[in-house]
């Protein structure tokens, strides 16, 4: 990724609504071709940030550069290369899927003949080929979202921005959708910016994530780097379950030496320590005739990173 172009840059980007600060001094850099996840609870300022990137909302302070265009001054140039899938995307209900896509194509000055071809191939790609000539009013939520993806791709954008793309979709649909999003970066080489509050979904598709709380970006980077930062401060957390679950087991774990804190809940021990004590634990357990049923070092997944960052910020 190094050496590639920073296609989206924000400098001290801020947005205030009266007394409320929606986005506060945001400095974000997104590299061309990566999938970047904007994570945060509802109301953290994700959508406002996205709207400022597109030039749809004017920043109170700071600037946005998208492919070296200033989004506030030259929104048309930005919108030519950026596609946006809003949360709860809407279509014209009494028009067919094809007509809706055609309208977008025309607004992007794409010739009708070329648009026809694109619509055909995109309909296949998002799995709507059979339904493309039905009215959107008959579409399910998942189909609308897939039509949204087709709508986003019709102008062949370099950057795709999606706001809560998995909101309100069933698990099977989510899987397909995430795969589609991942493809946008891997197959097509597009830059993708996804906002979400679903951590494990983002974990599957994002190269890097940024954690957004109260209008501030409090952490940004690849997921494992973020995890290292957190565990460095907070120590390692190991989950453990062993048989037989007797009092001696608890004693043994507590006496391992380096365990700082041991919690017990319905057969599951949670051990917090400065260093990784898994090896030690396993050895002493087997030496004392306990059989290990479950051992997992917690973390490395986004849920923990998220929870810890929020705990630190006093949000949760």
């Amino acid at each position: 990724m190094e050496g590639k172009k920073k296609i989206i840059r924000t400098e001290n980007l801020s947005k205030r609504y009266g007394n409320h600060t929606a986005v506060d001094g945001l400095n974000l850099e997104i590299t061309e071709g990566e999938v970047y996840g904007l994570l945060g609870p509802n109301g953290a300022g994700k959508t406002t940030t996205i709207l400022m990137l597109l030039g749809l909302t004017e920043p109170t302070d700071g600037t946005v550069w998208v492919n070296d265009f200033n989004s506030t001054r030259d929104p048309i140039a930005v919108k030519r290369i950026v596609s946006y899938l809003p949360d709860n995307v809407g279509f014209y209900e009494d028009m067919t899927g094809r007509e809706n896509l055609m309208y977008t194509a025309r607004l992007n000055s794409i010739e009708d003949a070329e648009a026809d071809k694109k619509i055909k191939s995109l309909a296949v790609r998002v799995g709507l080929a059979e339904y493309i000539d039905n009215k959107v009013a008959t579409y399910s939520k998942g189909m609308r979202q897939r039509l949204g993806i087709a709508d986003v791709l019709i102008k062949d954008p370099r950057i795709v921005i999606m706001d809560e793309p998995t909101f309100g979709i069933d698990p099977k649909g989510i899987g397909e959708l995430l795969e589609l999003i991942r493809e946008l970066s891997e197959k097509d080489g597009r830059t993708v910016l996804v906002s979400s509050h679903h951590l494990h979904q983002m974990e599957k598709i994002c190269d890097r994530v940024g954690i957004f709380v109260n209008g501030k970006l409090i952490a940004s980077g690849p997921i494992d780097t973020l995890w290292k930062q957190v565990s460095h401060e907070q120590g390692h957390i190991v989950e453990l379950r062993a048989e037989p679950d007797t009092r001696e087991l608890g004693e043994l774990i507590r006496n391992t030496g380096e365990a700082e804190e041991v919690l017990y809940d319905r057969g599951m021990y949670t051990v917090i320590s400065k260093t990784d004590i898994r090896q030690k634990l396993v050895r002493s357990l087997s030496d004392n005739g306990f059989s290990l049923m479950h051992l997992r070092i917690r973390g490395g997944d986004l849920d923990d990173i998220y929870r810890r960052y929020f705990a630190r910020e006093g949000v949760v």
Partner: peptide
Amino acid sequence: NRGTLSRLLSQPIH
């Protein structure tokens, strides 16, 4: 209300 305004405005039009 239909959610089409933001999609429309994100197209390259003034």
